[in-house]
Design a protein around this nucleic acid. Sequence first.
DNA 1: TCCGTGACGCGAT
DNA 2: CATCGCGCCACGG
Length: 106
Amino acid sequence: MNMQSRIVSAIRKIPRGKVATYGSVARAAGHPGAARQVVGVLRRSFGLPWHRVLGAGGQIKLRGDSGIEQRLRLEAEAVTFRGRRVDMKRHEFKFSRKIRRRKKNH
DNA sequence: TCCGTGACGCGAT
DNA sequence: CATCGCGCCACGG
């Protein structure tokens, strides 16, 4: 599995009414620091819940009409805002941490 | 093979 | 709050 497909599957896990940030998606995909790659994937892919991915702090980073559309789509999922940003206290999706456990000693 | 390109994140100012 | 500078780095042309 390459980075691109890991990022895609992470994004697909974000449920309706929840959001994640570019950075958290990157970390969930096992690539901390690869927020820009998340952007790249969103730009090149179709069929992803792109509107549920936000900038740090719950900010919509898209400019112009796309930004408006993103906000509308989120509001349509009952996501609430505090000013320009999503109320992360209520809507941030926490990716399940994959705990590294030692192999069982046989 | 090289290189410009990002819907970024974060600390400093 | 707004801006800036810098680190980041896979991907497509």
